[in-house]
Design a protein around this nucleic acid. Structure first.
Lengths: 314, 314
DNA sequence: CCTTCTAATAGTTATTTCCTATTACGTTTA
DNA sequence: TAAACGTAATAGGAAATAACTATTAGAAGG
């Protein structure tokens, strides 16, 4: 990091503003009035400024006030500075008023592909000036990224492994079963509707699951364990969409979050069956660093996400 | 007036500098040290700044300090502002150190053409960054321009008519007589050198003089009057060079300042004769507004002018 | 668990800015 | 020429602000 030795800045914006006002009015008393200060204060501040600069800015006696050449070039540059200051104030004001800003959001590929497309348009509509940057990764990596401050928020599912993360629940997502067409479980219907499947019934099935580091893999294993068996894994993929295709082609079965089973559009689509009560679900949350102040923009994103989820679940 | 609702500029350069230093160090204590203040002061000022902006600039707890998105864009703009401030300080410093600045100098066409060419080069050599703007006009107009602040200095000859002008003498300039070649006065020689002429001898001559408003016209008339006669004017011109040509072609005679008779280079050159003791002269001065502070650049110009004159008269 | 950093808070002091009153100085008017 | 007016500068004291010291509280590391 380059150390810029900045000399002591004794000059202050107030003094620039005072000088500019005097230049505009060409009269100390009137300038002081507009600045809501007394005339002697203005004289004092200007003298101080001139003394510090080592330059006379105004040629003045008791009757006339006019710029020196030095004063003229001072005013030119001072005005640029004040304009830049005004711009800075405006930018900060925009951010605090949600008319600007930036949020870096992490999400798993699954949710990125299936949930965010619903959220982002309405967020953009509501806060057109807030920039959203998306970062897709596995849930494990996302937790690390968020814990390390690389993202402001991450869309994740419980449980979180990183203890430094806090979260807000944004919704429950039911879990379905995916089987190949013609699978015996898909044939059990009641008035044409498939019957719910109990997880225990899957103990002898071949499972296709996500690779390690992806949260939903653990959810699958936990559900099977709760049902009293260890799933027989015949294939692993890091891509949930790929798994759907593999199931469709008859290589095995899998558990899948509802938002995926709802919107699968690829060529090879498996059959989705509901699971029996109590329907297993995963809790979707937006996670962020514990103890951290969330920017208003980030809060607005969370709020919009929640609203959108409520709409989706209807 | 305690209207604090939307006070204009409460932000101060000091605070920008503090914020930038914190951003550079990412550590309040070290930043405070470099700023030569105590750490609590720094915390206070930053909090005040953030409160005024309505935006958190640093995400911080007791162990880490890092920029928020708002903070990042703040620093970007703040650095621009500090750079502009530094530039302003530099410009003013240059002016006060005579490494910059501007002087508007008025001069009569005569002196502009014959004296300034000697002065300007050495001034430029000494103060290469000071800009000199020349304004040529008649002495009468120059006095008005300078009294009105349109020029910083004017090169004039005594007496000055404007009472609001002060002046510094920069030298005496002897006055010569110009006659056509072959004129009887030019024939009176002593060992080949022309004899000095007494002004009384010119009472019957035809004079070519400058137009009204030009100082040297009055000097000519005054000298004649002192010699006891009223000059017979046969022609008037506003241009001293033209008068030289007219004299050369035999239309009359004229009085001329030494610096002109010395350096006439045109096609039609008259004969220049010295005037008898006491040799009349005019006092050249640099005039400026009475009671006005002269910029250092203007003072430097005067000083350089004097030096150059001393060189010239040698 | 203790020690060590580091930022925030409390309370006080020092500095700076601002105010009122007044002076000084040009300009205009009588 | 003197008097009256308008304006910037100065003086001295009051108010506001930024600085300091001492301390607390919270995280990180041994």
């Amino acid at each position: 990091m380059i150390q810029k030795t900045m000399g002591p800045v004794n000059m202050e914006l107030r003094q620039l503003q005072y000088a500019l006002q005097i230049a505009a009015e060409r009269n100390f008393s009137r300038a002081a009035e507009k600045l809501h200060i007394a005339q002697p204060s203005l004289s004092q501040q200007l003298s101080k400024l001139e003394k510090e600069l080592g330059v006379l800015l105004f040629q003045r006696n008791t009757s006339t006030v006019e710029l020196t050449h030095a004063g003229a070039s001072f005013m030119e540059q001072a005005q640029k500075i004040m304009d830049a200051v005004e711009l800075l104030r405006q930018e900060m004001s925009d951010i605090s008023q949600l008319r600007g800003g930036k949020v870096v959001v992490g999400s798993m590929p699954i949710t990125g592909a299936h949930l965010l497309p619903h959220v982002l348009p309405s967020f953009k509509r509501k806060y057109p000036e807030i920039e959203i940057t998306l970062l897709e990764d596995s849930s494990m990596n996302l937790e690390k990224l968020t814990a390390g401050g690389k993202t402001d928020l991450s869309l994740l599912a419980l449980p979180l492994l990183e203890p430094s993360l806090a979260y807000e629940v944004i919704g429950e997502e039911d879990i379905d079963l995916a089987v190949p067409e013609g699978h015996p479980l898909a044939e059990r219907t009641n008035h044409g509707k498939p019957l719910p499947v109990r997880i225990e019934e899957l103990s002898e099935e071949s499972f296709i699951v996500l690779k390690k580091g992806q949260g939903f893999r653990k959810i699958t294993f936990d559900l099977c364990q709760q049902a009293g068996f260890e799933p027989k894994v015949v294939f692993e993929s890091s891509n949930m969409e790929t798994i759907q295709s593999l199931v469709a082609t008859g290589m095995g079965i899998t558990l899948v979050p509802r938002f995926i089973s709802r919107s699968s559009r690829s060529e090879f689509v498996p059959v989705y069956l509901p699971l029996a009560e109590p329907v297993p679900s995963r809790t979707l949350v937006i996670a962020y660093r514990r103890g951290r102040y969330l920017s208003k923009a980030a809060e607005a994103f969370i709020e919009t996400f929640r609203e959108t989820m409520r709409e989706l679940v209807k």
